[in-house]
Measured scan of single mutants.
Amino acid sequence: MEVRTIKVFTTVDNINLHTQVVDMSMTYGQQFGPTYLDGADVTKIKPHNSHEGKTFYVLPNDDTLRVEAFEYYHTTDPSFLGRYMSALNHTKKWKYPQVNGLTSIKWADNNCYLATALLTLQQIELKFNPPALQDAYYRARAGEAANFCALILAYCNKTVGELGDVRETMSYLFQHANLDSCKRVLNVVCKTCGQQQTTLKGVEAVMYMGTLSYEQFKKGVQIPCTCGKQATKYLVQQESPFVMMSAPPAQYELKHGTFTCASEYTGNYQCGHYKHITSKETLYCIDGALLTKSSEYKGPITDVFYKENSYTTTIK
């Protein structure tokens, strides 16, 4: 009895394709271990004539594949690729409408935090270190965002349907971005203890939790000093293409032309909904596939993004 075979390709990165001759009487799992086709788990399936010449994702289970996976995804987590594939199996079914010149995501599976993050990423200057993220990001900007969303979920250790947080998501993504040249110098002034300067680099240099107003941050924000008295913390120097200011959701007025974009969060910790506000020729609110415009805006804002380049204080 002759062994019926077909020729397929296996890959971990969709760049390096490895030619395989597979036995049609055995499952993919018996031949390769966990195997995925377009995100779908085909591990328990036997090869079919229609699979001839198709590319299958496999887990990096030998040295060659491990090197290829690390170079593309910059992670050695053995569960990463499987999590990416199972997320992709959902995100490829989502709709990605162009809204006001940006790629958004039609609401499904509690994905409003991903839509808000995706919209924000198209408006701030950011370059990702893992080629996987950078490639998928370019495709997302062009309207094909399924891979990018699935990668975000995998890097953030999230599953489809789980509630997510924009600030946490951005923080994970910033860790995989090139923020080497970003720098922030802060000064804390206390009447009792004097003053202390701190220099922050990388992710810490672009994120701040405690106030939404970048102007206020430049002037000074009140913080408790270690001595128990009130101290003032203010920005001395900022070198970065953008800054992200966050605070627990509270009524906040966004003035046209003073910011790049913002995240609105309605609801409580267990259950809520994100919308995205962007400042173009007027203010726009993007909620999944829905767009509304207004000249002014007041609502429960939790993150505001500002364009920056270089700032030095005039406070002496």
Rank of each mutant, 00 (worst) to 15 (best):
D287E: 03
N100C: 11
A231H: 03
K201Q: 10
K307C: 14
L200S: 10
C182Q: 00
F148L: 11
C156N: 06
Y274K: 01
L37F: 11
D63N: 08
N309Y: 09
L290R: 12
D109E: 10
D109Y: 03
Q238A: 02
Q230K: 13
G267P: 06
L88W: 10
G228R: 03
R4V: 13
K106Y: 14
P47K: 05
R83H: 07
T19E: 15
F80R: 03
Y28P: 06
A87C: 09
D165Y: 05
Y138A: 12
T91E: 03
T75H: 08
K316C: 15
N16Q: 10
Y214G: 01
V236Y: 08
G299Y: 00
D13Y: 01
E308G: 07
L283S: 00
I286T: 03
F259R: 00
W107T: 02
T75V: 08
I301F: 02
G194R: 02
K158Q: 05
T19N: 10
P34T: 12
G288T: 03
I315C: 15
Y73M: 04
I301Y: 00
F32Y: 09
Y234S: 08
S279L: 00
N129A: 12
T27Q: 15
H51C: 08
K158F: 03
K44A: 14
M209V: 13
N110I: 00
Y265S: 00
E162C: 04
P300N: 13
T55Q: 07
Q123E: 10
T55Y: 07
T27P: 10
D23Y: 11
K307N: 13
L163H: 11
D38C: 10
S25D: 09
S240Y: 01
E168Q: 12
H176I: 06
E215K: 07
T313R: 15
P241S: 10
D63P: 08
V3P: 13
N129T: 10
I124S: 02
E168P: 04
T11S: 10
K183V: 09
T226R: 15
V99D: 03
F80A: 04
M207G: 05
L133S: 04
A205G: 01
C285E: 12
D38G: 09
W94V: 01
C193A: 02
S104P: 01
A262K: 00
S240G: 06
G33Q: 04
T55V: 12
G228V: 02
A108P: 05
F259S: 01
H51W: 06
T199A: 09
I124L: 15
C112F: 02
L186Q: 14
P131G: 06
V236W: 06
T75G: 03
Q98S: 08
R141E: 08
Y284R: 01
F305A: 00
A205H: 03
G257V: 01
A150R: 03
Y214R: 02
L81S: 06
V188K: 13
Y96T: 05
A87R: 02
L133K: 05
E204Q: 14
Y57P: 04
P97F: 08
T313F: 14
F148H: 03
R139K: 12
N147D: 14
A136G: 09
T312I: 12
R167T: 04
E204M: 10
T169N: 04
T19Q: 10
H176P: 02
F32W: 10
G202F: 02
K201T: 15
L119V: 08
V21Y: 14
D287A: 00
H256V: 15
I286E: 00
A132S: 07
N147L: 05
C285M: 15
L102H: 07
G39S: 14
I315G: 13
T192E: 15
K127L: 07
Y113W: 07
E2A: 11
V221W: 06
L179D: 03
T292F: 12
K293I: 09
Q20V: 14
I45L: 15
E162P: 01
E239M: 11
S240E: 00
Y155F: 05
N309C: 10
C149A: 09
L235E: 01
K233T: 11
K218A: 06
R83S: 08
K95G: 12
R184N: 04
K275C: 10
Q222D: 15
Y73P: 03
I15M: 08
T313M: 15
G164E: 01
A262G: 01
T198N: 11
M24E: 11
L121I: 12
A117M: 05
A140M: 13
E71R: 10
T5S: 15
A69G: 06
C190I: 03
T11I: 06
E144I: 06
G143N: 05
T302K: 01
S240L: 01
G101T: 05
E215H: 10
Y214K: 03
Q134E: 11
A177G: 06
N147W: 08
V206P: 02
V188G: 03
L200F: 12
A136H: 13
C182W: 09
L291Q: 11
A154K: 01
K275Q: 06
K44R: 12
H273G: 00
F217W: 08
T5F: 11
K280S: 14
Y234T: 11
S213D: 13
K219F: 07
P34H: 11
T103L: 06
E239D: 09
T258Y: 08
G288I: 00
K183A: 05
E296L: 10
E253V: 09
K93E: 09
K95Q: 09
A146V: 06
H256I: 15
Q251I: 12
D180W: 06
E253C: 08
N147S: 12
K106A: 15
V206G: 03
E215S: 08
S240D: 01
V304T: 04
L121T: 11
Y57I: 11
T266Q: 11
F259W: 01
L291S: 15
F148A: 01
T91G: 03
L59H: 15
N147I: 11
K127P: 12
A132P: 03
T192H: 10
A262H: 00
Q30G: 10
T302G: 00
Q237C: 12
G210W: 04
H276W: 14
K54S: 11
E162A: 09
G272L: 00
Q196T: 14
M244C: 06
K183G: 04
T192K: 13
M85T: 05
E168D: 05
L126V: 13
T169I: 09
G33I: 05
T76A: 15
C193L: 02
N110G: 01
Q222C: 09
T43W: 07
H90F: 10
S246H: 01
L118D: 04
F305K: 03
F217G: 03
G228E: 04
G53P: 05
A132L: 04
E2W: 09
D287H: 00
S86I: 13
H276M: 08
F259H: 01
M170F: 08
K127W: 06
S213W: 00
T10F: 12
H74Y: 06
L17F: 08
H176A: 05
